[in-house]
């Protein structure tokens, strides 16, 4: 029940974030959606994810606000051209219609796959404590059974931060000075 309320609030927040004219309010509403998601994770008995989501959400909000402050606060009016908008909405509708058959294959909410017989998750729950010594099974999967995934994740994070720094780096002071000198000589 709480999940439904949270989901509806999240959808409202997402709509406000996409439709409001002011970029700063849009960024703040997406932050509200993120914190509601954090609450939803708590209700779904996933405390580790709730903590991670909260940390990431704060950092993401800071970055997004940095991107919008003092910039383009003149509001962007209108949408894309009529024909392009029509095609885009058509694409959204097509994706929706094509997804409908897959809802029947989903397990019922509240009855996950692990409740039926021996699954991988069941094995983790049974043997996690004995094999890894971690009381928190999520952590034992993350840092023991699937360590390589976590290593890959760390690599991706490192690469993306390197990429962001390489894009945002200003040209060094010395080069700028040399350019000025050349222009002065001309």
């Amino acid at each position: 029940m709480e999940i439904l309320v949270l989901l509806i609030l999240m959808i409202i927040g997402a709509f406000i974030a996409t439709e409001t004219r002011d970029l700063l309010s849009s960024v703040i509403s997406v932050g509200a959606v993120g914190f509601l998601l954090c609450l939803a994770f708590l209700y779904l008995k996933a405390p580790d994810i709730a903590i991670t989501q909260m940390v990431v959400e704060v950092l993401a909000l800071i970055i997004l606000i940095r991107a919008t402050l003092h910039r383009d606060l003149t509001f962007v009016k209108g949408m894309r051209a009529k024909l392009g908008l029509g095609f885009s909405l058509f694409a959204v509708v097509v994706v929706t219609v094509l997804s409908i058959p897959f809802f029947q294959d989903l397990p019922k909410f509240g009855h996950p796959l692990l409740s039926e017989g021996r699954s991988v998750a069941n094995f983790y729950l049974q043997e996690g404590l004995r094999k890894t010594g971690a009381a928190n099974i999520t952590t034992s999967v993350l840092l023991d059974f699937r360590m390589y995934d976590t290593l890959g994740e760390a690599t991706i994070l490192f690469t993306s931060i390197l990429g962001a720094l390489a894009i945002l780096r200003r040209p060094s002071h010395k080069k700028v000075k040399e350019k000025d000198k050349e222009e002065a000589l001309k």
Binding site: T52, V56, T138, L142, R146, T150, E153, A164
Partner: peptide, 22 residues
């Protein structure tokens, strides 16, 4: 509850943050 998706979603959240920053 199922611990496997939880472990994978933690990875996914962090990767999403990397994408956002870039």
């Amino acid at each position: 509850v199922d611990p496997l998706p939880q472990a994978l979603v933690i990875t996914s959240i962090v990767i999403g943050f990397g994408i956002l920053a870039l």
